[in-house]
Amino acid sequence: MAAVVIAVHATFAARLDHLFQLGVLAVLVGILAAALVMQFAYGELPCPLCLLERVAMFGVGFAIVQNFRNGFSERMTGLALIFAVLLLVIATRQSMLDIAPRPGHAYIGSAVLGLHMPVWAAVIGLLLILAHALKITLLGASAPGATPMPLLAAAGRVLGLALLGLCAVNFVAVVLQCGLNECHTFSYQLLS
């Protein structure tokens, strides 16, 4: 009886873990898509640190895609946390860069709910770390090799492909904006 209860609990925890990772991936895809909308629809070219923040978010997404594609592993949770910390460090440094008004330095882009992009990036980094800490505290380590339910696996596949598509668009945009040189926010270097 006790063995059955433990097995049911482990299965339930694994399902919640998969749902959690799917949720994080969906949020990341949404944020990265919104960043591209701001870039192309509103003409807000990303600065170098903004682009590095996108890389960090893609890194967290990569770790989750690896879990869904190649089996769940706590190593990928570690990788996601590394990228989340990288996002927090870059965003905090960028926020400090523009926090004191001075000539030539102002927050890039529009404010959303009164907060500018680097501040939002810091909040996202912090929330990613907290969410993973909470997940590990409540659910324990990801069950190695656990298979997600077919619906969750399909959703993970779709979101993984969406993340791949977003990364491809970002890659082309970066090549157009920066070429092989330093990135600037004035224009797309290869189009001017």
């Binding site: 170098p48 682009l51 590095l52 890389v55 893609f58 890194g59 990569f62 895609v65 690896q66 594609r69 190649n70 993984g160 492909l161 993340l163 791949l164 990364c167 491809a168 970002n170 890659f171 970066v174 090549v175 920066c178 070429g179 092989l180 990135c183």
Partner: peptide, 16 residues
């Protein structure tokens, strides 16, 4: 920056 995004794109493709 292009190399960084290229490496990330490659990583995602290889994961797929």
């Amino acid at each position: 920056m292009a190399a960084i995004f290229g490496a990330m794109l490659l990583a995602l493709v290889l994961a797929e």
